[in-house]
Design a protein around this nucleic acid. Structure first.
Lengths: 164, 164
DNA sequence: CGCGGTTCGTTGTGCGTGCAACCAGAATGT
DNA sequence: ACATTCTGGTTGCACGCACAACGAACCGCG
């Protein structure tokens, strides 16, 4: 027989039914939604989800431009990953690089008119998808509750990625 | 000015505050937890999250073995991805391949004693992590609610991956 | 039987990503 | 003014994954 090592409390060795449903459900739900939304965006607008996020953050930013570094942390991507993603989007003419005169090291990624248009079209599709797949499955009260809970989770998980 | 195209309803063009918090919060929370849990497992047991999941599903299966195909869909991985993952775990001696005599095409992945031990150790760590990061942030009632909601989400999202 | 159609697992290939190393420029200290 | 340290962005590299194509084996039907 195995002797108790760290703990014999049952919850140390297995999850209860509801716990398992909540946890594994989240993993599966996330995967399913990410896949579905990505496929949808790809099919309708030929845009990947990560590309969409770049355009979206840029569109919502002052002057439709952001520093590479800020953008990277916004979309949860490493700096190197963003460099290449911006390269791709630049090649497609959706965004352009603009030098930063305050800081000669810096680069802005800036939305082009074409990028703006692309996003305007994609945004409607994507938001409809998010609603249909996610938001509509919860009541407003539940959404509120979720929003609060996520904040707690995010804080607890350290948020290792980049700065702070 | 831009004219109305598909729809002018405000919710077609943007998310409300609570909606945004619930949706983006989930994306960030998921990313943060996945990263933290993976790092933890890697640091303590030198095991990747995907490897852990394989071991876990195997341990919970009859005779601690599963068909490659079933395993792949359980851990949300493509068949080819699983082939190589099982290769890796096999090289580490944690699992072994067993031919299936019912179906000569088939392969079982089966836990080795070493894999069993590894999992027993890792499971405690991982479950503690899941609790600390996720489960403990919700009340039992909230977990129940979440579990139900995920089912609706998963069903709605099609679940494209593999069978049914 | 023998013949299509399907499923299981593997392999070739390409892509997106993170990490580490790097350089240029900025910030800080003396 | 100079040396040191830090930061922003890019590049080399390796890894994990999905997709498509493949061979083998199973299944159904005539």
């Amino acid at each position: 027989m195995r002797m108790a090592t760290t703990s014999d409390a049952p919850q140390a060795r297995q999850l209860s039914g509801p716990e398992l449903r909540a946890w594994r459900g989240m993993l599966r739900a996330h995967a399913a939604m990410a896949k579905a939304l990505d496929a949808q965006l790809e099919a309708v607008h030929g845009l990947q989800l990560s590309s969409y996020e770049v355009l979206m953050y840029l569109a919502d930013a002052d002057d439709e431009r952001m520093r590479m570094c800020d953008l990277a942390s916004s979309i949860l991507l490493s700096r190197s990953g963003l460099t290449r993603l911006v390269d791709r989007l630049g090649r497609e003419g959706l965004i352009e690089r603009v030098a930063c005169h305050d800081d000669a090291r810096g680069q802005f990624a800036k939305l082009t008119p074409a990028g703006r248009e692309k996003l305007d079209a994609a945004r409607v599709t994507h938001l409809a998808g998010v609603r249909a797949l996610f938001l509509d499955r919860f009541t407003p009260a539940e959404l509120e509750l979720l929003g609060n809970a996520w904040d707690r989770v995010i804080e607890g998980a350290g948020w290792s990625c980049c700065k702070t």
